[in-house]
Design a protein around this nucleic acid. Structure first.
Lengths: 149, 149
DNA sequence: GTTTGACTTTGACTTTCTTTGACCTTGCAA
DNA sequence: TTGCAAGGTCAAAGAAAGTCAAAGTCAAAC
């Protein structure tokens, strides 16, 4: 088994035990005898939003990386939508998704309203047209992810 | 937990207890075994206007630092925050605004959660650093606008 | 057997947050 | 009006984490 898998397994274990994994990047790297940035690689390749994880971190003295698993109650459907989005999303498709989720009661009115606000073309007009959809996709996915809690 | 967090927690506790925190900088520093300017660091990094705090102080004999929460009087507060954002917004300032608005009950939990999700750096990582803040500002302002009732 | 491409490993460099200390300014009182 | 008792400012050093690109690995495709 390669190093990345070992690290990933450690994190999975911590998550199963306590629901969240908080690590010190440099300390962990030292224990494992690898470079610190390997930890980042593992996190960015395996603990992504698409896979249902959320990551927070802080630099400087007392810094940390915290990984939490988003629980899936009614989440399967939401997760399905998140995965179906792909890496670009236009305004109309986005609105359709939101209305559909609202109709299915997977989102409430407040959530739908904010998602619609964040999906409007006006938010992204300052960007070159080719990448608007990409940023919209990322923002909306992050937001939907937060609706699973 | 690092020293700054310990100090911040003490101040939070005082605020919850009595609505205001009045401290003697040198005395507190001595009790904690740190340099006095560390107190200033904690205050300027955590008890900012964005987070809804106001700080007064006095030098000389009988000097003090007093920290209080800013109370919201009218409903124009939300609009005020929106206007104060300008055309670029970094993640930390954004989070501070959101937590403050939540505390003031101008946002509910759902709204704050989605705003937080949309303010994370992860949403904008695919963009060049210089323009991330601009897009974040636009998205968040649109969302806040939709929260005005 | 070689080539290709996805995934991994590594390390140099950057950014952010914290801690520390030297020096500055202000208010009060003898 | 001068001296002490606060608090204020700033920059340097330290402590973490983040980024990026080059190099390595390995299996599938040719």
């Amino acid at each position: 088994m390669n190093l990345s898998n070992v690290i990933a397994q450690m994190i999975y274990d911590m998550l199963t035990e306590s629901g969240e994994a908080e690590i010190q990047r440099n300390t962990l790297a030292e224990n494992l005898g690898c470079v610190p940035s390997q930890i980042n690689y593992v996190i960015s390749s395996r603990f992504t939003p698409e896979r249902g994880y959320s990551v927070e971190s802080r630099r400087g003295g007392g810094g940390y990386i915290r990984i939490t698993r988003i629980s899936c109650e009614n989440g399967a459907m939401l997760m399905h939508v998140i995965n179906s989005i792909g890496d670009s999303l236009d305004e109309n498709t986005c609105r359709a998704h939101i209305r559909n989720l609202l109709y299915q009661k997977l989102l409430n009115e407040d959530e739908a309203r904010l998602l619609l606000a964040a999906s409007g073309e006006g938010c992204y007009r300052q960007l070159p047209p080719q990448i608007r959809g990409r940023v919209r996709a990322t923002v909306i996915k992050q937001m939907l992810l937060s609706c699973q809690k």
